[in-house]
Write a protein that binds this DNA or RNA. Structure first.
Length: 755
DNA sequence: ATCGCCACCGTTTTT
DNA sequence: CGGTGGCGAT
């Protein structure tokens, strides 16, 4: 009966409910009701995908308010800012009044607000600018430029390698030392100073009043830890702490939750250990496992019923996750009968894959399903490029989530940099950016200018005395004058914007002469956003913490409405659609990392697929292209992702459409179909644990260590060849008897040694 | 020594 | 798109 009510309410999409415990009991199942109404100590809700965990939080907020709890004493911590807003909106709808006063947002936003409020009282830096990941990389680049790298050899390692190191520095997930001592030890021989990079980075941030995402959390944690009076005040104020997506918190966040609930222990955390997909940025799923020990006296509530998907979808997703090394806490079941069996489909290439998706979307649409009830998910942003072309060709409107953010485009960054130097004159990252925009001024000159800026307490005055060369004096003077004017009389943000745009427009037209009208439109969008703020600092904080999506071409009216959704799996978290297509599920693309030897990363990729598949309510399509374009020219045959390879035949409808599509492809391929016998191996022939211990069967060449010049190798498609040159540890030039010279990537190719 | 321009390449995931 | 390397101009 309760489930019946529950389902009706879900389907209507509108939840209405008179206040009072009885109505809540009617709308929730017993486990949910228990979680919602528990108030005397910590509660952990372990909830499977689609089991209504967000709903549980919404109801708890509404229930607390209905009990007469002051909104100010509720703190709702979510994964994204939008999630918090949405939950509060729904809770308000439930109650029939707004939830204003409830403090809700991400850990970072809350940490920022409270840090700014309390820091000055206790001697913490209260004046700072928040930097995003791009800024952090910019700083490191500046630092690298300032290091003397010429000594060891003029060649500095490629940018990609440096960025890998940076991600170690920027995401605290791995200390720099670890990276340098293992995978990147060769960097040290190029540049011994790189070992100090982390230290220099920290120093730079301190000197220039900059804080990255981690600093926000760490400083906030320290504030609570070192100052009992602040901790108690906050703990007293926030009597009810609610945390969503707890499996994606990092240890510092867990500590913050503990500190802020010190006086009452009134924490409700909600999460699913099988959906932990953010370890790359420091999240630790052990947080949710250890919650009961961390918070003694925890009531654990498990939600195992899935209200989202039909049983066949659930059967498949249960299978996917059951092959994980780690045992998860629950097995989902559904009472939604019927439904289609999910399909796993191989297409000949990306083009065909895009066509397949488009055709099925049109078909579903013809049957009456609105476009916004369908989504296409993929591992990485660029996997959808081909599909985007196909959708444009058929004029199917779509929005891409998790794509480029407004504040990530160069021109918006430029504009924000002017704001930032006005707000924080020691923000040298922004100084660097805006000075580079001057004509005939390059990195070298900017370095000298920055020295001059640094030499005076008043940065702008320091800049003004720099001896400008005649060639660019005009532009330089214009910049100094503009900034000086604005520094003196601080106009409201929108006026400030107009004045700066006046200065910047000629610059924009010079630099982006080919597409500046489009960029001007983006800036117009930025202005609209800015219009909602009367405080520049708050605007800059938000721009860094919650960068808005870029709406190319669409008006605010129809953005998102009636559009198909394209999304990375990470950005699809917590959402659901009637029909879901997961594309590019090919080996080499899906476990996308090259470090597939790391078990934890491997398992996280599996969970990622689980998250993707559990977004579907009714229809689920899993597709992959059998051939991918690789480096330069030529295709490479790829296989189904290992996570789907060994599923029981019954849980999905497997299609091997090569029989139909092969003839449609070029003669070149059709002619060699015979060599290409290595179809996806669905059967139980291979053991599920193929990696590592399958060496006694066939051993593919995965490293150039096993290769030498003039050695004979066999490629599954190109056949016999001779190694000509070893280019990098992972790529090698091979001359094939029948196909000529090819560059082969060992991570993709299944190369065998020939005698 | 420094800057601008052109041609080419390769994309994890993100608060 | 943004980064990079080479080359010619200043």
């Amino acid at each position: 009966m309760q489930e019946h009510l529950f389902d009706n309410r879900r389907q209507n999409g509108r939840e209405t409910c008179e206040e009072g415990p009885d109505s809540f009991a009617r709308a929730l199942n017993p486990a949910q009701f228990e979680a919602v109404t528990a108030t005397d100590g910590p509660v952990l809700v372990i909830a499977g995908a689609g089991s209504g965990k967000t709903r549980t939080l919404v109801y708890r907020v509404a229930w607390l308010l209905a009990q007469g709890v002051a909104p100010e004493s509720i703190l709702l911590l979510t994964f994204t800012r939008k999630a918090a807003q949405e939950m509060l909106r729904r809770a308000g709808e439930l109650l029939g009044r707004t939830c204003s006063g409830v403090c809700g947002g991400t850990f970072h936003a809350v940490a920022n607000t409270l840090l700014r409020r309390y820091a000055s009282c206790v001697g913490y830096p209260s004046f700072f600018t928040i930097i995003d990941r791009g800024d952090a990389e910019g700083i490191i680049k500046l630092l690298i430029a300032s290091l003397n790298l010429s000594g060891a050899g003029k060649r500095f390692p490629s940018k990609r390698v440096v960025l890998n190191v940076l991600s170690g520095v920027v995401n605290r997930a791995r200390p720099l030392d670890d990276l340098l001592s293992s995978r990147y030890s060769h960097l040290l021989q190029f540049a011994p100073d790189i070992a100090r990079l982390d230290e220099l980075y920290q120093q730079f941030k301190r000197d220039h009043a900059l804080m990255d995402y981690d600093d926000l959390l760490v400083n906030f944690k320290n504030l609570l830890q070192d100052h009992p009076e602040v901790r108690r005040e906050l703990s007293h104020r926030f009597q009810y702490i609610l945390v969503d997506e707890y499996q994606d918190t990092n240890p510092i966040q867990a500590r913050i939750v503990a500190l802020i609930s010190e006086t009452h222990g009134n924490v409700m955390a909600v999460g699913d250990d099988a959906q932990s997909i953010y370890s790359f940025r420091g999240a630790d799923y052990k947080n949710i496992i250890d919650f009961p020990t961390f918070f003694p006296g925890t009531k654990v509530v498990t939600l195992e019923e899935n209200y989202r998907s039909v049983q066949p979808v659930l059967t498949l997703t249960n299978e996917i996750i059951s092959q994980a090394r780690q045992r998860y806490t629950k097995k989902l079941f559904s009472n939604k009968e019927g439904g289609e069996i999910p399909r796993i489909v191989a297409l000949s290439d990306e083009q065909d894959e895009a066509c397949f998706v488009v055709e099925h979307i049109l078909e579903l649409q013809k049957k009456g399903m609105p476009l916004e009830q369908m989504a296409v998910l993929f591992r990485s942003g660029f996997h959808s490029f081909k599909l985007e072309l196909a959708l444009n060709a058929r004029q199917i409107p779509f929005v891409k989530r998790g794509g480029l953010k407004l504040t990530e485009s160069a021109h918006v960054k430029d504009m924000l940099s002017y704001f930032r130097v006005l707000e924080n004159p020691s923000d040298f990252l922004s100084w660097n950016r805006i000075l580079l925009l001057l004509e005939k001024v390059g990195p070298r000159t900017v370095q000298k200018m920055l020295d001059s800026v640094r030499s005076r307490p008043d940065s702008l005055a320091g800049l003004a005395v720099f001896p400008a060369k005649a060639a660019w004096k005009e532009g330089f003077d214009a910049l100094v004058t503009t900034l000086r004017q604005l520094q003196e009389k601080r106009p409201p943000p929108v006026d400030l914007f107009d004045r700066l745009l006046e200065y910047y427009t000629p610059v924009l037209e010079r630099i982006y002469y080919d597409d500046y009208p489009k960029r001007l439109a983006d800036l117009e969008q930025l202005k609209n956003i800015l219009a909602g703020y009367d405080d520049l600092k708050t605007f800059l904080d938000d721009a860094a913490l919650d960068p808005p999506d870029i709406d190319t071409g669409r008006t605010r009216e129809n953005s998102g409405e009636g559009c198909l959704v394209l999304s990375t799996i990470h950005s699809a978290k917590g959402l659901e659609w009637e029909a879901v297509f997961v594309i590019s599920l090919a080996e080499g693309r899906f476990p996308s990392t090259k470090h597939t030897d790391d078990d934890d990363e491997w398992e996280e990729e599996r969970r990622l697929l689980y998250v993707a598949a559990t977004r579907a309510k009714q229809h689920l399509f899993l597709t992959y292209p059998r051939r991918l374009v690789v480096h330069g020219q030529g295709f490479e045959t790829v296989f189904l992702t290992p996570f789907l390879e060994h599923l029981p035949q019954s849980c999905a409808h497997f299609s091997c459409p090569h029989r139909q599509t092969q003839s449609a492809t070029s003669g070149f391929w059709a002619g060699h179909a015979g060599e290409d016998q290595r179809q996806p191996r669905f059967g139980a022939g291979n053991a599920p644990k193929e990696r590592g211990n399958a060496k006694n069967q066939v051993s593919y060449l995965t490293s150039t260590r096993a290769l030498a010049k003039d050695m004979c190798v066999i490629h599954p498609f190109f056949g016999r060849g001779v190694v000509e040159q070893i280019v990098t540890p992972k790529s090698v030039v091979i001359h094939f008897d029948r196909h000529g010279r090819k560059t082969i990537h060992l991570d993709y190719a299944r190369l065998l040694a020939a005698s």
